[in-house]
Simulated scan of single mutants.
Amino acid sequence: MAELLGVDAAKAGGLVRAGRFPCRVTKEKGRYVVLPDDVLVAMGLDDPIVRIVDLLAGAEFARRRD
């Protein structure tokens, strides 16, 4: 998840420990865990509704890349 937020994965643990990771993080069974909703909000995508226009635009983009 760190890469999605523009954070170097090697530095993510240090940022979490320092309280500077860009979204909420919990620790479960010795692993850092972030909730998908928190990642979306941190990315500025706080509205997770999929819109048909966005889906079609993504399909068109993928088609051009092939």
Rank of each mutant, 00 (worst) to 15 (best):
58 G>S: 14
21 F>R: 04
15 L>A: 08
59 A>L: 13
49 I>K: 11
48 P>K: 12
20 R>F: 02
22 P>V: 12
25 V>H: 06
33 V>S: 00
24 R>I: 06
16 V>G: 06
47 D>F: 03
46 D>Q: 13
5 L>P: 02
59 A>F: 06
41 V>T: 12
22 P>E: 09
41 V>P: 05
55 L>W: 14
15 L>F: 08
41 V>W: 01
53 V>W: 03
65 R>N: 07
46 D>K: 14
3 E>D: 12
41 V>N: 01
54 D>K: 07
25 V>S: 03
39 V>I: 07
33 V>E: 05
53 V>K: 15
65 R>D: 00
30 G>S: 04
42 A>Y: 04
21 F>N: 00
21 F>T: 01
18 A>M: 08
7 V>D: 02
19 G>Q: 06
19 G>L: 13
40 L>G: 00
58 G>W: 01
2 A>W: 00
37 D>Q: 12
63 R>S: 12
31 R>V: 11
38 D>G: 03
41 V>H: 06
45 L>E: 12
29 K>Q: 13
58 G>H: 06
55 L>C: 10
61 F>C: 03
5 L>V: 05
17 R>M: 06
54 D>Q: 12
14 G>W: 04
7 V>K: 00
9 A>Q: 15
62 A>Q: 09
58 G>T: 08
20 R>Y: 08
35 L>V: 10
5 L>G: 04
51 R>P: 07
20 R>G: 08
8 D>W: 05
9 A>W: 15
53 V>L: 13
18 A>C: 05
16 V>R: 04
64 R>I: 01
44 G>D: 03
12 A>P: 01
34 V>C: 13
45 L>Y: 15
64 R>M: 11
65 R>C: 05
41 V>I: 08
8 D>Q: 13
57 A>H: 11
18 A>R: 15
42 A>Q: 01
38 D>W: 06
63 R>C: 03
